[in-house]
Design a protein around this nucleic acid. Structure first.
Lengths: 191, 191
DNA sequence: ATCAAAAGTGACACAAGCGTTACTTTATTC
DNA sequence: GAATAAAGTAACGCTTGTGTCACTTTTGAT
C-alpha cells in the first residue's frame, strides 16, 4: 500500500560510491547524490538523517558484500590457492579499500545512530581481519611466508599493492599477474 | 618599508599540508587555514586568488623540495645504494605521494594562473619520473630487477608500499626494514 | 471509489564558504 | 614625525549545502 521507489538501495549505493571516489568524503553532498539519482534532495532525508549516516550504511553494505565472498576463501585448502582466490577477489572489489578509508574522516559524533553504525562497521572490519589472519596463518604453517614480517604489515602490503593506480592502462590480465608477482617475490629477480 | 608578516611561507605550507591530509582537497578551506595561522581569512587573499592557486603553490614547493633531494641519488653508483637512499628519502617525505594525488581533483579551470601552475607541476612530475626511470634502468643494467615487470608498475609499487599505513605503530626502524624487504623480495620466504 | 501509507517535491530558514573592499595597523624611509 | 607601502581586519553580498516541513503523488487494500 505504497508508492514505488524511484531508486533501489543498490543504485543509491552505487551512486554514493561514485561520488565518494570522485569527490572524497568532504566533497560528498546530498545535492550531488540526489542529482545522480534523479530525485529531489528532500527524498533522501526520508531514509537518512544526514550524509554521515548514509555513508556509514553504504560502507556497511559494501563490507558485508565483500565479507560474504571473502569467507569462501576457506573452501580452499592450501595457501597457494587461497592467495589466488584473494587476489582475484580484491581486484574485483577494487576500490573498497579507499572508500573504507573515509570512515576515519567521520569523527564528529553527529548522532547516536551514526555512532552505533561506526561500531558495527568496526566489528565487520575485525571480522574481515580475522579471516585474513587465518589466511596468513595458513601461509605461515606451510612455511611459505617470510617469518620476519608481521601479520599486519603483510596484510597492509597486499591491500596497498592491489591499489596501485594503473595510470598507463595496462591490460587487466597482465596487470593482475604482475602485481601478484610483486606481492609474492618483490621487484628483484627471482634467482 | 612594510609591516612584518604574521606567517612565513613555510608555516603556511605546513598548515596547508596538515589540512589537506586531515580533510582532503574538498575539505580544505581558507577559514581553516586562517584559523591555523591565527590570521584573518582576508589576509590570505593578499597572496592567493583562491584555494586552487594556494594548493598548487604548496604542491610545487613540496615537489621542488623532494626533487632537489632526489637528484642526489646520482651520487651513488650502484642500484643497491641508490635503492637504500631512495627508501630513506621516501620515508622522510612520507605523505607527499598522497598530497600530490589531490592535484587530480583540481579540474575546473579556475584561472589562467592556476592552469599555468598545473602545467608547471606536471613538468616537475615528469622530471621526477625521469630521475626514477634512470634509477630503474640502473637496476635493469645490473640485472637485479624482474624483467617481466614494467617500469611504471615497479615505481607505483615502491610508492604505494612506502604509504602502507602503520596502524599498529611498529617502531620506525623495524617498519622501514620490513617494508624494504617486502619491496625487494615480496612476502614469500627467500629460499 | 476511497482512503491510508509511503514516496516524492519545493520552499524556507539557517550555516558556512567565497571573493571583494573600505578601512586600520605597523614599519620603514626620508 | 610625516609619508607611504605593505600587512592585516571586518563586514558585505553571493553561492552552496543542510535539515525540516507542509504539501502532492502514487499505489495497494478495503
Amino acid at each position: 500500500m505504497a508508492r514505488e521507489r524511484k531508486f533501489s538501495d543498490k543504485t543509491l549505493y552505487n551512486a554514493a560510491k561514485h561520488i565518494l571516489l570522485n569527490n572524497g568524503y568532504e566533497g560528498f553532498t546530498f545535492s550531488l547524490l540526489a542529482d545522480e539519482l534523479q530525485v529531489s534532495r528532500g527524498a533522501l532525508y526520508k531514509y537518512y538523517e544526514n550524509k554521515e549516516e548514509l555513508i556509514m550504511d553504504y560502507m556497511i553494505f559494501e563490507m558485508n558484500r565483500f565479507l560474504a565472498e571473502l569467507k569462501e576463501i576457506n573452501n580452499y585448502d592450501h595457501f597457494d590457492s587461497q592467495f589466488d582466490f584473494l587476489i582475484k577477489l580484491m581486484f574485483k572489489h577494487n576500490k573498497i579499500h579507499q572508500v573504507l578509508g573515509f570512515s576515519y574522516q567521520i569523527t564528529a559524533i553527529i548522532s547516536e545512530n551514526v555512532r552505533v553504525k561506526k561500531v558495527h562497521l568496526e566489528k565487520l572490519h575485525l571480522e574481515m581481519y580475522s579471516v585474513l589472519r587465518s589466511f596468513i596463518q595458513q601461509g605461515r604453517n606451510e612455511e611459505l611466508l617470510n617469518p620476519s614480517i608481521k601479520d599486519e604489515l603483510l596484510l597492509g602490503f597486499i591491500f596497498q599493492s592491489v591499489d596501485i593506480p594503473n595510470h598507463s592502462e595496462m591490460p587487466q590480465t597482465e596487470w593482475v599477474r604482475s602485481v601478484k608477482e610483486l606481492i609474492s617475490h618483490g621487484m628483484f629477480t627471482v634467482k
